[in-house]
Computed example of a mutant assay.
Amino acid sequence: MIGLQVHESPIKKKLERDQTIMVERDWSSLPFDVLTVILERLRWSSHPSFALSCRHWHSAVPPFYPAWITPLLLNTARVGVTNLRYYSPYYHKNFEVGSDGGGHMLGAARGAKICCGSGRHLALGMSSAALDVDLLTGVVHKVPHVYKTMFDFIIYGDDACKMFGIDAVVPLKVAYVNQDDDGDWEDWTLTEFDINGPRLIPSPVTNPVIHRGLIYLLGEQGRLAVYDPCKHEKGFEILDKPMNFGFECYDSYDIYMFESDKNKLMVILIGQRGAPVHVVTLNENTMEWDKVDSLQGRALFTGTQASMMKKAELEWMQNRVFLPIFYKWLETVHVDLVSCDDELAFIPKSFSNTDYSTANEDGENCVDMWSYKLGQQEAAREFWGAEKMDYSIWIDLN
């Protein structure tokens, strides 16, 4: 009986060899270009966890600074007309975005006043018009103006598709404008002029604040004027209460109003050379200002037209007030502002000689230059030289 010899086909051998290689190769050996493609499809907030998987995966994660961790101080001080800088209290660095990354809007807005921000949108005021700027793309939309001079205050509505303009020259006047589906802004709608309308001397350094759907304008002594957008024709109404802040308030105070992260209407008063500092909140039952002794682990960012309070994860930032001071300058990282799945991050243009540490954990330099511990009794020397400028504003890109 003759035996038959069975030969395995070359194709079968190759399949078995490939399967063996796949079993032996684990996820840590994925090609670098594959990891890059995966990262492009993940949110920025997932990158740190991705980098912790193994050394190979960590090498594929590009250096980046999340732009949503704390509010950023957007400013144009000491920068050319084509660049923007964002100061981050978390990293204690300036991130400079050039003309190719959303900063070129300043070329078309020289001399403009920064009025307010809403997410990635920034409103600028000029003598002939207002401008709506997309900070990510640099696209500028012109908003028609109805006055020979700009409004005293311009703020966005609950989103960046509506603006309100407020003329604080007595009597108070208010207007609104909407953005259409094509991104163009319509004409302003004004309240009728009334020579006997409401009169209030507003705090000159703080924007009106939207609180529970109403717009509040703060007077220098704690009085409030309120406007209901649903009753536009009625304009502003000055409330009977509160009548004052509950303590003697001098003209030397800078007064800033904001809505806290817990939807409370609050005010910070900063005395000459940084002391004293008072924080009050509106008791909406009694309509009086109540003194606040602690920020309850939060940080307050103020000193510009827009102020905001946020929960602080780092201990050194808790119960601190942050103000812009420009007599000292910080390390500047040249970056692109990039979006990934609705999250924004600063991507350095050059990776050499750059420290990509997660944060300044101890905060020593930041404390000396930028912040004030609530309850501190002595005059805060770090406030000396604090600037109130039309070219800086706190914004939240979260």
Rank of each mutant, 00 (worst) to 15 (best):
A306F: 07
L52R: 12
D26K: 13
T149I: 12
K264Y: 07
G101S: 11
V97C: 08
L295D: 01
P71M: 07
G222I: 03
A312V: 01
W370I: 01
S88Q: 02
I255G: 05
L136F: 14
G246V: 02
L30G: 00
H278C: 04
D293A: 10
G80E: 10
Y250L: 14
R110G: 12
G297M: 07
N244G: 12
A380R: 06
L337I: 09
V205K: 11
D152A: 09
P242M: 04
G3C: 12
G219Y: 00
R212L: 10
N360A: 11
K264A: 13
S49Y: 06
W27K: 14
A299M: 13
D362G: 06
L200H: 02
Y176S: 08
Y86G: 00
Q221C: 10
V279D: 01
G80L: 10
T358N: 11
S339E: 14
Q305L: 15
K113I: 15
C366S: 07
R41S: 13
Y253D: 05
F322H: 03
S118K: 14
K328S: 09
N353I: 06
A77L: 13
D336G: 07
Q179F: 05
P10C: 06
E361L: 12
S203I: 04
E220S: 09
I114P: 00
N398E: 11
L323A: 09
K291P: 05
D100S: 11
M126C: 11
S49E: 12
V277A: 03
V169P: 03
V367C: 07
D167P: 03
S357I: 03
E259I: 05
P62R: 12
G183D: 10
V279N: 03
D184I: 12
M163F: 12
A345M: 07
P71A: 08
K310S: 08
V226W: 00
D251Y: 09
L35F: 02
L172Q: 01
D152R: 12
L397R: 04
I114L: 13
E186T: 14
P202C: 09
P48V: 03
A299F: 03
I393V: 12
W188L: 08
G303H: 02
P89V: 03
K349S: 02
Q305Y: 12
V143G: 04
S294A: 09
S128M: 14
L42E: 04
Y253L: 08
Y147P: 02
V321S: 00
G246I: 02
E288W: 04
S294R: 11
Y327T: 13
C54Q: 06
E96A: 06
S9N: 10
L323F: 08
E96D: 06
G363D: 01
L397G: 01
S392H: 11
Q305E: 14
L282K: 04
I395E: 01
T206K: 05
V81C: 14
N244C: 14
I166A: 04
F247A: 08
K173W: 06
L224I: 13
T149S: 14
F351P: 01
G222M: 05
L323E: 02
I268D: 00
E16D: 15
I270F: 05
E248M: 11
N178A: 08
